[in-house]
Design a protein around this nucleic acid. Structure first.
Lengths: 199, 199, 199, 199
DNA sequence: CATGAATGAGTTTTCATTCAT
DNA sequence: TATGAATGAAAACTCATTCAT
C-alpha cells in the first residue's frame, strides 16, 4: 500500500496547496465564489474539507492567495509605469503590457469581472480597486478633457471585455486579441493627442 | 388596533409586490444576489419571509420579475433597431437610446454587471445574452474588419462602464454621462466609417 | 393527518420556546454548556436544529434567556436590600431570601457553579458578578475587620455549597437546607457583631 | 543554522513535557478545558500539535497528569490526617496545611473550581471527589450535629473561595490569606466544640 | 394577504487524533 | 523528538421553502 513509482498519488506530495488553488480558481470562475462550496473543491481534489483548512485558514484566504499570487505582475507594471515619463509611448506600452498581464491570469480576471459584488466585500476588493486607479492615473492626463479621460478608462475596459465578452466574435483568439489591443491603444492615443495640442 | 386613516400602512395596500421588488433590487445591487437573503428583504420591509412567498414563488422569480419589468424598453429598442436601415444615424440613435435605457434602470444593470456569474446561472442569463447579441448585431456590420467590430462592442461596454466604474471621475453626473455617450458614439462612428470606405 | 384531540403534539403548540429552555437547562446543568450540542437539545425535543434557531438567535441566547428569566427574583432581592437599613435583621433576611432564591432556581445555579469558566466568557458573566458584588456589599460593613468581611462572603458561599456539594451529607434535604441556612446566618451575625462592638 | 550556544532553545531540551503542562494549565485555567484547543497550546509553545502527542496520548492525559503531579501533597496530607487522633489540633493543622496545598497549586485548583462540569466527566473527577470526602471525614465528627458538619464543609469551601472569589476584597494577598484561614479554622473549632461538650 | 412555526439540506469552520517520515 | 499532511466527526449556524391558520 502506497507504492513508490506510480505517479497518481505520489507526485502530488507537497503540491496540494497549489492544486487547491487551481481547482478553486477553476470553480470560482465557472460558478462564482458563493456558489462554490468547499465540499465541492475538496471532492474534486479527492481530499476532505479539513485538508483545505490545513492549507488555508478560511475560504476567503483561498481567493486572496490566488489574487496575490496572480496579480503580482500587475503590481510591478504599475510600479514601472509610475516611474516613466507620461509620454504617449509609455501609455501605449502600459496598455500593451496590461493586455498581456490580463491574458496571463485570465481565469482570475474572469472571476473578478463576473463576481464584482463578491469581490467588493472581500479583502481583495480595495487592493484591486486601488490598483485599477493607479493604472488609470498613469494613462490619464489630469488636465485632459473629460471625454479623453473617459477614453482612457474605456481602453482598459475594452481589454477586459476583450477577454471575456468578445469570445463569440469571429476570428481566432490571437487575431482577436490583436484587434482588441489595437482599439485600446487607439483610444489612449486619441486621448493623448486630444490633450496635447494636435488639431 | 390597526387604524384605518393614517397613511403609514394604508398607502401600501396592494403595492407590496412592488415594494418587495424595490427593496430586493436595492439589496441585490448592494450586496449581490447570493449574499442577500429573503430574511433580510423581509425584515427591511417589516413583513415575514412567508409574505414574500405569497407574491413570488421563489427567490429567483423576484429577480426574474425585476429583469422582465425593467428591461422591457431594451427589448423594444432592439425591435425598433432591427427594422431600421443599418445607417450610421440608426447606429448612433441606438447607442443614444441604449444609454438612456441603462440610466433608467441603473440599479438593475449595476446588479447584472456585478453579478454576471450569478446571472449566467439564472433563467435571465440567456435572455439577456441574446438581447446583447441582438443589439450588437444591429450596430456591427458583419463584413467589417475585426477591429471595427471590436469598436462596436467596446462602445456598448463603455456605456456600461460609464454607469458604474467611472463614478469617481471628475465632473457632475450629467456631464459625465454626456462624455461617455460622446466616446461611445465616436467609436461606433469610427467603426462605421472604417467599414464604408472613407477618406 | 394531524388529529385534534390527542395531547401528544397538540398541547405543545406555542410552548416550544419554553420546552427548549427546559431541556437546554437540564442538559447544560448535567453535562456543561460546551459539551451540550444543539443537536442533542433538538433531538431530545423531537424537533430539528433549525427549529431552535427560530426561537433563539444563537446558542448563547438560550442560556442568556434562562439566566434572565430565572434570576429576576435575585435582582429584586438586591433592590430591596439596598433600600433597607444595614441592620443585623436586614442582613439575616437577605441571607434567608437568597437561600430561597437559590433553591427556586437550583438547576440554573448549579449550572453557573459548575461552569464558571464558561459563564465568565458569556454575556451573563458580568451581570452575575455585579449582582454577587451588590449582594455582598449589602451584608458587608465596609469598615469591618477583614476577617468579618471574609465571614460574609463565606456565608454566601456556604449557601451555594449547600445546594450542590453537601448533598451527600446525612439528613433529608429540608433538614440540610435549614442547617446550611443556620450556619450562614451565624456567619453573618458573627461578622455584624464583630463590627458593632459587643463583648 | 541551529546554533548551539544561545540559551533560547537549548535550555528547553528535555523539558518539553513540563512546558506543555505549564502552558496547558495556564490556558485551561484561563479559558476552561473545552475552550482550549491543542492547536492553541502548541502554537503558544512554538511546536506542532503532533509534538503534544509524542508526550501525551490524549488531551485528557494532559489534565490528568497535571492533576496527579500537583495534588500529590494533598494525597499525602490526607494520609497523614487519617493516622492522627481526631483532636481539635489535628483538625486545625489539616485546615492550615490544606490552605497551603491550595496556594501551592492555585492554578490547578482554580481550574477545578471553575470547570466542575468538565472535571466530573473526566477521569480525575472521581479521584478528586474521593479525596475531598477523605478530607471531610477527618475534620467531621460523624456523630456531630448536622449544623456542625456543615461548618466543616463550609470551612473547606471558604478556603477555596478565598483563593478565587475573594480576590477583590481589600488588603494584600497575604493578609487576606490569613483572614480566610482564620475564619476557616474558626469554623472547624466551633464545630469541634459543638460536638465535644462545651456550653 | 399574511404570519408563526418549522424543516431539510446545506454552509463554513473547528477539533482531537493519526501516521509516515 | 518532532513535523507535515491529513482525516472523520461534529459543531454552530443559514437558507430557501412549506403549510396550516
Amino acid at each position: 500500500m502506497g507504492g513508490t513509482m506510480d505517479g497518481t498519488k505520489q507526485q502530488r506530495r507537497g503540491d496540494t496547496r497549489q492544486r487547491i488553488q487551481d481547482v478553486a480558481l477553476a470553480l470560482f470562475a465557472e460558478q462564482g465564489y458563493e456558489k462554490t462550496s468547499l465540499r465541492e473543491i475538496a471532492e474534486r481534489l479527492g481530499v476532505t474539507k479539513a485538508a483545505l483548512y490545513y492549507h488555508f485558514k478560511t475560504k476567503e484566504e483561498i481567493i486572496v492567495s490566488l489574487f496575490e499570487d496572480l496579480t503580482r505582475p500587475l503590481g510591478e507594471l504599475i510600479e514601472w509605469g509610475r516611474q516613466q515619463p507620461h509620454t504617449l509611448e509609455t501609455k501605449q506600452e502600459i496598455v500593451r503590457r496590461y493586455s498581456e498581464a490580463l491574458a496571463a491570469a485570465a481565469p482570475l480576471f474572469r472571476f473578478m469581472q463576473e463576481n464584482q459584488a463578491t469581490v467588493r466585500e472581500l479583502r481583495i476588493g480595495d487592493t484591486f480597486k486601488s490598483r485599477m486607479t493607479g493604472l488609470r492615473d498613469i494613462i490619464i492626463d489630469p488636465e485632459a478633457r473629460l471625454t479623453d479621460q473617459v477614453r482612457c478608462v474605456s481602453a482598459l475596459f475594452t481589454l477586459h471585455a476583450g477577454m471575456f465578452v468578445m469570445q463569440d466574435l469571429e476570428g481566432d483568439p490571437e487575431e482577436r486579441r490583436k484587434a482588441v489591443l489595437e482599439v485600446a491603444i487607439d483610444l489612449v492615443t486619441q486621448a493623448h493627442q486630444g490633450a496635447h495640442g494636435d488639431a
